[in-house]
Simulated scan of single mutants.
Amino acid sequence: MTSSLSPAELVQQFESLESRLAYQEHWLDTLDQAVAQQERRLTTLEQLSALMRERLREQHQALQSGNAPDAARPEDDIPPHY
């Protein structure tokens, strides 16, 4: 393909391409930061989920065995007249 553009037009196109490239690099950096932040949040949420599952499993086992740490005992109940 032969170009019939003048040197000034070529410079203008070149500057336009440089500008577009800079804009795309900026957004690529922005998206990269967002993905990294989401990955950190996901890791934290996965750890929290695992902890909650473990605690739920422990509570379920305690309820099944009948000695739950937070289970109310009849002797701990406040009489209705208090």
Rank of each mutant, 00 (worst) to 15 (best):
H26C: 04
L28E: 05
T44G: 02
E46M: 04
Q37S: 15
L10G: 01
E39P: 05
E15A: 01
S6G: 02
L51G: 05
Q61N: 10
L5K: 02
S19C: 13
R53N: 09
E46G: 00
A8I: 07
D29M: 05
A36G: 02
S19F: 10
L17E: 08
H60G: 01
A34F: 14
R41L: 06
A8H: 14
A34C: 07
M52W: 12
T43G: 04
Q47A: 11
L10E: 06
L45K: 08
S16Q: 14
Q47G: 05
T43Q: 12
T44H: 08
Q13A: 07
L56F: 11
Q13P: 01
A50R: 04
L51Y: 05
S19T: 15
H26D: 03
L45N: 06
E39Y: 08
L51H: 03
A22F: 09
H60R: 15
R55H: 14
A34I: 13
Y23F: 15
T43Y: 06
E25T: 09
Y23E: 11
L10H: 12
E9Y: 01
L28T: 11
A36P: 00
S6Q: 01
T30W: 05
E54N: 06
T44C: 10
L31G: 01
P7V: 01
H60K: 15
W27P: 00
Q24R: 07
A22M: 09
M52S: 09
A34D: 15
Y23T: 08
S6V: 02
E25D: 12
L31M: 13
Q13R: 12
Q61P: 01
